[in-house]
Design a protein around this nucleic acid. Sequence first.
DNA 1: CATGAATGAGGGTTCATTCAT
DNA 2: AATGAATGAACCCTCATTCAT
Lengths: 206, 206, 206, 206
Amino acid sequence: MSEKRLPRREREKLRQRREMLAAALELFSEKGYYNVSMHEIAERSEFAIGTLYKFFRNKEDLYKALMMEKAREFHQAIMEALNRKGDVFAVVEGLIATKGRLFADNLPILRLYFAETRGASFNIKAGLDQDIRRLYDESMMRLASVLERGVQNKVFRDIDPYYMAVALEGLINAFLFCWLEDPERHPYEANVMVIKDIFFKGVLAR
Amino acid sequence: MSEKRLPRREREKLRQRREMLAAALELFSEKGYYNVSMHEIAERSEFAIGTLYKFFRNKEDLYKALMMEKAREFHQAIMEALNRKGDVFAVVEGLIATKGRLFADNLPILRLYFAETRGASFNIKAGLDQDIRRLYDESMMRLASVLERGVQNKVFRDIDPYYMAVALEGLINAFLFCWLEDPERHPYEANVMVIKDIFFKGVLAR
Amino acid sequence: MSEKRLPRREREKLRQRREMLAAALELFSEKGYYNVSMHEIAERSEFAIGTLYKFFRNKEDLYKALMMEKAREFHQAIMEALNRKGDVFAVVEGLIATKGRLFADNLPILRLYFAETRGASFNIKAGLDQDIRRLYDESMMRLASVLERGVQNKVFRDIDPYYMAVALEGLINAFLFCWLEDPERHPYEANVMVIKDIFFKGVLAR
Amino acid sequence: MSEKRLPRREREKLRQRREMLAAALELFSEKGYYNVSMHEIAERSEFAIGTLYKFFRNKEDLYKALMMEKAREFHQAIMEALNRKGDVFAVVEGLIATKGRLFADNLPILRLYFAETRGASFNIKAGLDQDIRRLYDESMMRLASVLERGVQNKVFRDIDPYYMAVALEGLINAFLFCWLEDPERHPYEANVMVIKDIFFKGVLAR
DNA sequence: CATGAATGAGGGTTCATTCAT
DNA sequence: AATGAATGAACCCTCATTCAT
């Protein structure tokens, strides 16, 4: 953002950091945490090992930084979609579109990301889980409060808005995976239509 | 099954194999693939390392065998639920109940399992994916064909039954995770009710 | 000792351990703790690195084991000399001879040993110090009790026997180093004579 | 000394050098040569790493310079004590007092120092030994020549004065360590008395 | 001239796998 | 057939040293 205002040295550092994280992202996405060595990351990012360790205390730290960076990015995109003005329908549509874009553009990292929120997270001892969960919970609460408007307007039936949010999340994710696994057979538009169809029909007041 | 018909030697071998896999399951569930050593598995299962390698070519092979075993077990339970007689509503309810039981009883291994179907599958280089996917696809097709009956009976709206299956899957999984993460706040029964409520309302003909 | 009674396997293990320690002793003596790598020890002892780590938890552990082994050996030799029958003069002479032999035969390791009892012991975090000190203290107390006999017999003046022991130790070590540094110029026998001359003259009753 | 006569630039350099050595002394004394990094020394002395390397070719060089500095300091103090006017008894008493003061004030560095003269000197590959030894030898010769006066005066028996010096050194060091290790139990004055008692009784003519 | 970012060799350690017994 | 001692490649990380600024 105001990056350009930073002293040249700082800007340079940020650029290097980004390059390291980019290389790490590629590698972790390709092969997973345990199948990537610090040497590889150093090589791919064209820095010396020692330089890597100047920026990140250890491999775990690098991984955490990477995941948090991405998590915040996704979170921000989703929050923006949820905060956009418009009726509930428009916001939900915006959310679906946003998630669709995020999925399409970040499939590899999303695999890692899902492993964090849902799956095992054996990769990293602790801490990351918590932080990512917090972001996830925040966006869910936001989504719930959006849906609550629908309930208050009597557009939606009187269902716990948080549960409606969970349902919507589940539907979106299921269909996005479905699409990504075989885009030919399950084109994006068809998926979006079904999500909206089933979700709205399922929650509408009548 | 027909295990008892096997010569004693073979039966003995199968028992040993099962013990090895049981030990491995415990350990992998606790700590994840990369944080478990073959030595640990050997120790926990009370076999010598060498014996482990008589049964499984390498660590990866052992892991794959374990996952396939579990995948088949889950698949079987789900297929049974789907093949039970009764109207669509009953079958779907049965499916939800079955998945609920599976989740509750196998949370740790399911974390690994999810990493396979959804997430990264970085754990294991390749191959396992395919086999597990096949089972998953089969159960999805079966679920779709069950739901198709609902469409044919005009109980459900005319939605692609496969998409209805995807939607149901998404809903069930989302709510089951929701329940497992905080069983106090999101009791099982409440979750089940919302799933059915939203899903059926969403797909019913009127 | 009763080593031959051990099962063959155990004997073999002891032999290997001894070989590892011997290689480590050579190297540590030559170059000091920090200038010796585990790889070198493995190579010199003709074992694989992994095998080293089967016997010793880590480098520090190996070093401690080595030092304690030697410390006990020296301690035993000195205690034997101190427990030998005979008048105080004979025992002191025996002690000087024993220390002379130990010094001559173990100069390199003694350098390390001295660094432990006297010097820095930055090598090893802790623990070893204490254990070696305990042995050292024990032998000093024993020496003091031997010298006390001299006081009780009125052969020695009434000086605190522990201080007499400290004095004797100081004299012996000083002269042994003196001898070892230039055996030509300071022949062993001359040294021994001076030690005895000064010490006995210094403590005799008249 | 004549430092003030140097051009300002040179004086400044010397001051910086002294600060670096002071920081290094603190750190080496605390943790030993191998547990101190050049970065730490740079940080503690508040210079940049590069500046350190302007003053000292490498870590070893810095260490050697430090040790020589201290060795010269100690040597000077001891030579002063030995050159003081007065009879042999007074000089020896002065030597004991001087060494006592040196020990008490410089325990940590003396640990390193002892490792050099007595012990291993593994810290540093070579070279330092020789220079320090030379100083040590010089002070021993001086002490011997002091004691020789005692022999010539017939105050001392006819013992090789160098051996008398070795004996005295051994006694002093032994008792100083004894004191430093447990000052409560072995108070300084008691130690000094025993040293003098035994030494003089041991060497006096009658 | 002082600086400190960048380097990469080399350290300690682990663990999947083999093979002689 | 079962064993587990032995192996060594490969991991993560540190730190003395250099050199462009």
